[in-house]
């Protein structure tokens, strides 16, 4: 009887401890990552490779998402504004939304799936096949070799990919407005420039950078702590994607609260 009463509480307790332990492990991995900066000889030549993998290869999916986001934003804005609000506000909405929210967040979410899963699976496989141990025995610090180049690549390339996504999204929104909404370019541009502030771009970059950091570190974390063969790799990959997606949304809200 007591057991049945206590069961939910012990579940909550276990979950809380697990969460705290997870955050602790993440903190330690992050600290170790920054300490590993001194092993430039190890991560230096891997950085470009990871930048290509994390950034370059993510451009198509990010651009694809951005194109459709721009189209939808444009059309839905005009639908919402019917009559009451002048149409040039479509430009305001497309520009502001792409820069402040959808550009960074949709790119971040897409890349958390692509990059986060890739990292977790790759490092997880290396863990269960003892490749990480092998690195150690050959005197390669694993964090410097595996984590740091990915994290740096994420920090550098997420903003790059996001910038392209924002530009493409605004471009597609603009073309949509031109072709489907009977708006003129000056009208759209007027809306675009009306409330523009350079901080919008800074804000997008802050978001993208933090998303890059979070997605890569979480991918590495789950990869590193993978246990138990192929199934373990699968679990890690799923968890990495789920946790990094959630972190992106939490972080998104955090930046909105602190910076706006």
């Amino acid at each position: 009887m007591t057991e049945r009463i206590l069961a939910p509480f012990s579940t909550i307790g276990r979950r809380a401890v697990a969460l705290a332990a997870g955050i602790g492990r993440w903190g330690m991995l992050t600290a170790e990552t920054f300490r590993s900066l001194r092993h430039v000889d190890v991560w230096g030549r891997l950085l470009l490779q990871q930048m290509a993998k994390i950034g370059l290869d993510s451009v198509p999916i990010a651009v694809f998402i951005a194109i459709f986001t721009g189209i939808v934003l444009s059309l839905q804005a005009s639908y919402t504004f019917t009559g009451a609000v002048p149409l040039y506000f479509v430009g305001v909405l497309v520009g502001k939304t792409m820069m402040l929210e959808l550009g960074p967040v949709l790119t971040g979410l897409a890349l958390s799936g692509r990059v986060g899963a890739n990292i977790a699976a790759e490092i997880g496989t290396m863990r269960v096949t003892e490749q990480i141990d092998a690195l150690e025995t050959m005197a390669y610090p694993p964090v410097a070799y595996l984590v740091l180049p990915r994290v740096l690549a994420g920090i550098i390339m997420f903003p790059v990919v996001t910038a392209l996504a924002i530009a493409v999204g605004i471009g597609s929104g603009w073309l949509t407005a031109l072709q489907l909404l009977d708006m003129s370019t000056p009208e759209f541009v007027r809306g675009l420039t009306l409330f523009f502030e350079p901080f919008d771009v800074t804000f997008a970059f802050i978001k993208a950078t933090s998303f890059g950091f979070v997605v890569t570190t979480i991918g590495c974390l789950f990869g590193f702590h993978t246990r138990g063969g192929a199934e373990g790799v699968g679990t890690s990959t799923t968890q990495a994607v789920v946790v990094s997606s959630m972190s992106i949304l939490v972080l998104d809200a955090f930046w909105a609260v602190t910076l706006l």
Binding site: T125, M126, E130, Q131, D133, A134, T137
Partner: peptide, 11 residues
Amino acid sequence: GYVFQFAALFD
């Protein structure tokens, strides 16, 4: 030198 059970070669 360490020879791993499943070789642990880098794929």
